[in-house]
């Protein structure tokens, strides 16, 4: 089942859900559930998806959704996995879904614990780079220079976006990957790869948020594409914390950082100094990634 394939029956998400128009998070979950198939259980922590999934007696997904408190996602996932095992559901894929807050900030301890225990489930972080459900407050996933409602003009987010992938790699989890909504084929590939791996798997999905980022709702895909092209959000995977592979290279010639930021009102007040600082950060991190990939390539050739 390819997610680009047109088949209503295989869509796991019902139309009529509560996401805002152009929601990247809705797309991300649409893709991931379709890629993973029907035999999944979704553990859902506090995030926009707590709302998108609907108010019982309604539901937006064709699979069990277990809501849980904000910091608990990583641990509830462990329990669900082990509980299902105890009841003989070894084939069921457990997916823990959290936003950037539930992953980078309040959920980090549980995430780290589960990753370290190598719990057998897929942790998916859909990252819209701030607390969007509560109305755009700074999280540690908010990029440097962005304006938020807890860093209103003339303030801006100080400090860099936390590099969650390096943190997960440092846990030497069997599989970790980044993905974004403009590249559903790549996203699908990674989720299907993840589904076959045993142990802890981490997928970091950049999910643009039109109201929070101040983009046009129609620009969700475009802005996601530019995030990749500019090297701001590289698409790659890492196995066992050491085996790095770039899946969609940046295309710096075709896209500039100011073009990417220009689509987003949260960067409206970005001056050149800050732009350069952010560019420097991106270049440094992208180069580090390239080095990590090159090291792997060199080792395999030996």
């Amino acid at each position: 089942m390819k997610i680009a394939e047109i088949n209503r029956q295989d869509e796991m998400i019902y139309p009529g859900h509560n996401a805002c128009p152009g929601c990247g998070a809705a797309l991300a979950v649409r893709y991931l559930t379709k890629a993973l198939g029907k035999n999944i259980v979704l553990v859902l922590t506090a995030s926009c998806w707590s709302i998108i999934s609907g108010m019982p007696p309604l539901t937006a997904l064709k699979c069990p959704i277990l809501h849980c408190p904000f910091p608990s996602a990583g641990s509830v996932g462990s329990g669900v996995r082990r509980g299902l095992n105890a009841r003989g559901h070894h084939d069921t894929t457990v997916v823990v879904l959290a936003g950037d807050g539930g992953t980078f900030d309040i959920g980090l301890q549980a995430l780290s614990g589960a990753a370290q225990r190598n719990e057998d489930y897929i942790f998916v972080c859909y990252d819209n780079e701030a607390y969007m459900n509560t109305g755009m407050q700074t999280s540690s996933a908010t990029p440097f220079g962005a304006r938020t409602n807890t860093a209103p003009y003339p303030l801006y987010k100080e400090g860099e976006k936390k590099d969650i992938m390096q943190i997960m790699a440092a846990h030497t989890v069997p599989y970790a990957a980044t993905a974004t909504v403009a590249f559903p084929a790549d996203l699908e590939e990674k989720l299907k790869t993840a589904q076959k791996v045993k142990g802890f798997r981490f997928i970091h999905i950049l999910a643009p948020c039109p109201p929070g980022w101040g983009t046009e709702s129609s620009d969700t895909i475009e802005v996601s594409r530019l995030a990749v092209a500019t090297g701001f959000f590289p698409l790659y995977e890492v196995r066992n914390g050491t085996n790095w592979k770039l899946t969609v290279p940046a295309d710096i010639k075709s896209a500039s950082l100011s073009q990417y930021l220009g689509l987003q009102r949260r960067f409206k007040e970005m001056d050149d100094r800050r732009l350069n600082e952010l560019q420097h950060e991106i270049n440094r991190d992208y180069q580090r990634l390239l080095d990590q990939v090159a090291k792997v390539t060199a080792e395999t050739q030996q």
Binding site: I3, A4, I6, R8, E11, I13, Y14, P15, G16, H17, A19, C20, P21, G22, C23, G24, A26, L27, R30, V181, P184, P210, E216, S217, S218, D219, T220, I221, E222
Partner: peptide, 30 residues
Amino acid sequence: LFCPDVAVDQVDGKFEVNLDYCKGCGICVK
């Protein structure tokens, strides 16, 4: 593929927007 609302249907091979669910984000157009 890109509809966040699964509001695009294929009717007899042709694509049609399902106006019951289309929120008008404009991604399909863009």
